[in-house]
Simulated scan of single mutants.
Amino acid sequence: MARPHPTHSLRGALIVGATIAAIAFILFVICGGLANAHDAEPTSVLPQGWSYPFACCANYDCRQATGEMKEEPDGYHTPSGEVIPYSDKRIKLSPDGEFHWCAHQAGLDAGKTICLFVPDRGT
């Protein structure tokens, strides 16, 4: 049985390696890096916006939800129908005074809450 010429194997390995590196680079650029969170939209309070903590999102899980959250006696009611008790550790103070909801599949209004940023009520 004939063996492949050593330069053919090396050339093939280089092509495969370069292709994998190019795909990895493209995915990194598209995703904006692995350790970055995304930014909240600017508001009158914070015209420059602010960044959601990475622990709360992975580049797409958070969005402003002013007017969608309901404050009821048992806690905050999310667009997905989930109730987050007022004592829940997922509740964070909102830097811009608006509601922001971070949930798996938040864009679908069907997700499970990761973090909920709420306005300061002075309590």
Rank of each mutant, 00 (worst) to 15 (best):
D61W: 01
Y52L: 04
E41W: 05
Y60I: 08
E98T: 03
G33E: 11
C115F: 00
E82W: 05
P79V: 10
H5M: 09
I114E: 07
R63D: 01
S80I: 06
P4L: 13
V45I: 14
N36R: 14
G17M: 06
H77S: 02
W50P: 00
A55D: 15
L27T: 12
S51Q: 15
P6M: 10
H100D: 03
F99S: 01
A22K: 05
P85W: 03
A106F: 00
T19W: 05
A22Y: 11
A103W: 00
T19C: 12
C62Y: 00
C115M: 04
C57E: 11
D61R: 01
A55R: 08
V83T: 15
P119K: 02
I20N: 05
K70G: 05
R11F: 14
A58T: 11
G49V: 08
S87L: 13
V29F: 08
H100T: 10
G32V: 12
S94C: 09
L27R: 06
H104C: 10
D96R: 02
R90D: 05
P4Y: 12
K112T: 15
N36Y: 12
T43L: 02
M1L: 11
D88N: 15
L93K: 08
G49D: 07
H38M: 10
F54Y: 13
A18Y: 07
V45D: 14
N59W: 02
A110Y: 01
L10G: 08
V16I: 13
C115Y: 00
D96S: 06
P47R: 03
A13I: 08
K92D: 09
F25K: 07
C57W: 00
F28G: 11
I26S: 12
G75Q: 03
A13M: 13
P85D: 07
A58H: 09
A2K: 11
G81Y: 10
R121N: 13
C56L: 04
D74F: 04
V45R: 13
A13K: 09
K112F: 05
I30Y: 14
A37M: 09
R121Q: 13
G107S: 09
L108G: 00
I114L: 14
L93R: 08
H104Y: 08
H5R: 15
A35P: 00
Y86C: 05
A35F: 10
I84T: 04
A2T: 15
V83S: 04
G75M: 02
A22L: 15
I84H: 00
T123F: 13
C62E: 02
H100Y: 00
Y52T: 09
C56Y: 00
I20S: 09
L108M: 13
I30M: 13
A103L: 04
A40Q: 02
L108Y: 12
T113E: 02
A13R: 10
Q105C: 09
S87R: 13
L116F: 01
I26F: 10
R63T: 02
E68N: 10
G111K: 01
G49H: 06
A13P: 02
I20R: 03
D96Q: 03
L116N: 01
C62D: 03
G97N: 06
F28A: 13
G12Q: 14
D74G: 03
G81K: 08
P73L: 08
K70N: 11
I91W: 00
E41Y: 06
